[in-house]
Amino acid sequence: MIYRIEDIEAKELLPGFSGRFVHGENSTLAFWDIKEGAALPAHSHHHEQTSQVLEGRFELTVNGESRIYEPGTVVVIPSHAEHSGRALTDCKILDTFCPAREEYK
Protein backbone atom coordinates (compact mmCIF):
# COMPACT_ATOMS: atom_id res chain seq x y z
CA MET A 1 0.00 0.00 0.00
CA ILE A 2 1.21 3.53 -0.75
CA TYR A 3 0.46 6.56 1.44
CA ARG A 4 0.85 10.31 1.05
CA ILE A 5 1.58 11.66 4.51
CA GLU A 6 -0.39 14.87 3.98
CA ASP A 7 -3.46 12.81 3.01
CA ILE A 8 -3.53 10.96 6.36
CA GLU A 9 -5.88 12.52 8.91
CA ALA A 10 -3.90 13.95 11.84
CA LYS A 11 -4.82 12.97 15.41
CA GLU A 12 -3.83 14.99 18.48
CA LEU A 13 -2.99 12.32 21.05
CA LEU A 14 -1.42 14.68 23.60
CA PRO A 15 -1.62 18.47 23.84
CA GLY A 16 0.72 19.81 21.16
CA PHE A 17 1.40 16.36 19.62
CA SER A 18 -0.40 15.85 16.30
CA GLY A 19 0.37 12.55 14.56
CA ARG A 20 -0.27 10.86 11.24
CA PHE A 21 0.08 7.08 11.40
CA VAL A 22 0.95 4.33 8.94
CA HIS A 23 0.45 0.77 10.18
CA GLY A 24 2.01 -2.38 8.87
CA GLU A 25 1.44 -5.85 10.19
CA ASN A 26 4.42 -5.58 12.58
CA SER A 27 5.22 -1.87 12.87
CA THR A 28 3.79 1.62 13.06
CA LEU A 29 5.26 4.82 11.63
CA ALA A 30 4.23 7.98 13.46
CA PHE A 31 4.82 11.32 11.72
CA TRP A 32 4.55 13.92 14.50
CA ASP A 33 4.09 17.68 14.32
CA ILE A 34 4.92 18.95 17.80
CA LYS A 35 4.39 22.47 19.09
CA GLU A 36 7.16 24.30 20.93
CA GLY A 37 6.87 23.68 24.67
CA ALA A 38 4.73 20.54 24.33
CA ALA A 39 5.67 17.94 26.94
CA LEU A 40 5.76 14.15 26.64
CA PRO A 41 5.08 12.69 30.11
CA ALA A 42 7.32 9.90 31.41
CA HIS A 43 6.08 6.52 30.22
CA SER A 44 7.21 3.15 28.90
CA HIS A 45 5.76 0.50 26.61
CA HIS A 46 6.64 -2.93 25.28
CA HIS A 47 7.36 -1.53 21.81
CA GLU A 48 10.91 -0.89 20.62
CA GLN A 49 10.93 2.69 19.32
CA THR A 50 13.24 4.62 17.05
CA SER A 51 12.88 8.41 16.90
CA GLN A 52 14.33 10.66 14.23
CA VAL A 53 14.15 14.45 14.45
CA LEU A 54 13.34 15.81 11.00
CA GLU A 55 12.95 19.48 12.02
CA GLY A 56 13.49 21.42 15.24
CA ARG A 57 15.08 20.59 18.59
CA PHE A 58 13.66 18.06 21.05
CA GLU A 59 14.94 17.23 24.53
CA LEU A 60 14.46 13.54 25.24
CA THR A 61 15.15 11.71 28.48
CA VAL A 62 15.62 7.93 28.29
CA ASN A 63 16.19 5.97 31.49
CA GLY A 64 17.17 9.18 33.30
CA GLU A 65 19.66 10.44 30.67
CA SER A 66 18.65 13.67 28.89
CA ARG A 67 19.96 14.81 25.52
CA ILE A 68 18.92 17.35 22.91
CA TYR A 69 18.19 15.90 19.49
CA GLU A 70 18.27 17.86 16.22
CA PRO A 71 17.81 16.94 12.55
CA GLY A 72 20.00 14.07 11.48
CA THR A 73 19.94 12.29 14.84
CA VAL A 74 18.23 9.00 15.59
CA VAL A 75 17.71 7.40 18.99
CA VAL A 76 16.71 3.79 19.67
CA ILE A 77 14.52 3.43 22.75
CA PRO A 78 14.49 -0.17 23.99
CA SER A 79 11.31 -1.95 25.04
CA HIS A 80 10.14 -0.96 28.54
CA ALA A 81 12.63 1.96 28.83
CA GLU A 82 11.10 4.93 30.62
CA HIS A 83 11.23 8.06 28.46
CA SER A 84 9.88 11.61 28.41
CA GLY A 85 10.61 14.82 26.55
CA ARG A 86 9.71 18.30 25.48
CA ALA A 87 9.86 20.29 22.27
CA LEU A 88 12.37 23.14 22.52
CA THR A 89 11.08 24.45 19.17
CA ASP A 90 8.30 23.39 16.82
CA CYS A 91 9.36 19.90 15.69
CA LYS A 92 8.71 17.23 13.13
CA ILE A 93 9.67 13.78 14.39
CA LEU A 94 9.35 10.34 12.82
CA ASP A 95 8.86 7.49 15.28
CA THR A 96 8.87 3.82 14.35
CA PHE A 97 7.34 1.29 16.72
CA CYS A 98 7.71 -2.49 16.66
CA PRO A 99 5.35 -4.23 17.11
CA ALA A 100 2.57 -2.07 15.69
CA ARG A 101 0.84 0.40 18.05
CA GLU A 102 -2.69 -1.00 18.01
CA GLU A 103 -3.99 1.90 20.14
CA TYR A 104 -2.96 4.37 17.40
CA LYS A 105 -5.18 2.72 14.79
Rank of each mutant, 00 (worst) to 15 (best):
A87M: 03
V22D: 02
H80A: 13
I5C: 11
K105C: 04
I34E: 02
L40C: 07
A10G: 13
I8L: 14
T28K: 03
E48S: 11
G19I: 01
D7G: 07
H43G: 10
I2M: 10
D90W: 13
G85I: 00
L88S: 07
I77G: 06
E70F: 04
I5N: 02
E82I: 12
W32V: 05
F97H: 11
Y69P: 01
D90N: 15
P15L: 09
S27P: 00
T61F: 02
A87D: 08
G56Q: 05
G37K: 11
S18K: 07
N63A: 14
D7C: 15
E9L: 14
A87V: 07
L94N: 00
P41L: 02
T73S: 15
D7V: 10
T73N: 09
S66H: 06
N26G: 05
K105E: 11
E36P: 00
L40E: 07
A38N: 01
S66D: 13
E82R: 09
V74I: 15
A38H: 02
A87S: 06
E12T: 09
Y104K: 08
L60P: 01
F17I: 12
F31W: 00
F31E: 05
L94A: 12
P99V: 13
E65M: 10
S44L: 14
K92V: 04
A10H: 08
D95L: 06
Y104A: 09
E6V: 05
E65K: 14
H23A: 06
H83S: 03
S44W: 01
A30L: 12
D90P: 13
G19V: 02
S51M: 10
V76M: 14
H45T: 11
C98D: 01
G64K: 05
Q49A: 13
V62A: 12
T89S: 07
Q49Y: 05
W32L: 14
S79V: 09
A30H: 03
K92W: 08
S51A: 10
G37H: 00
P78E: 07
A30K: 00
P78L: 11
L40I: 14
A39C: 15
Y104I: 01
V74E: 08
S18G: 07
F97W: 10
S84I: 09
V76H: 08
K92G: 02
E55T: 14
L88T: 09
T50H: 14
K11L: 13
L13V: 13
F97M: 14
F97P: 11
L13G: 08
H23D: 06
M1H: 12
S51V: 07
H80P: 08
H83V: 06
I93Y: 01
L94E: 04
G72Q: 03
E55S: 07
I77R: 06
E102Y: 08
G19K: 00
K92Q: 12
H46P: 13
S18L: 15
I68T: 15
L40N: 09
C98P: 03
G72P: 02
T50C: 08
F17E: 01
E12M: 13
Y104P: 05
I93M: 08
E70I: 06
I77M: 13
V53C: 10
I68C: 07
F97Q: 04
I93D: 02
D33M: 09
G72N: 02
E48V: 12
E102V: 11
E82G: 12
S44D: 07
Q52R: 08
I8W: 05
H23F: 11
G85Q: 04
N63M: 09
H83M: 05
F97S: 08
V62L: 10
F58R: 02
L14T: 13
S79Y: 07
L88W: 01
T96W: 00
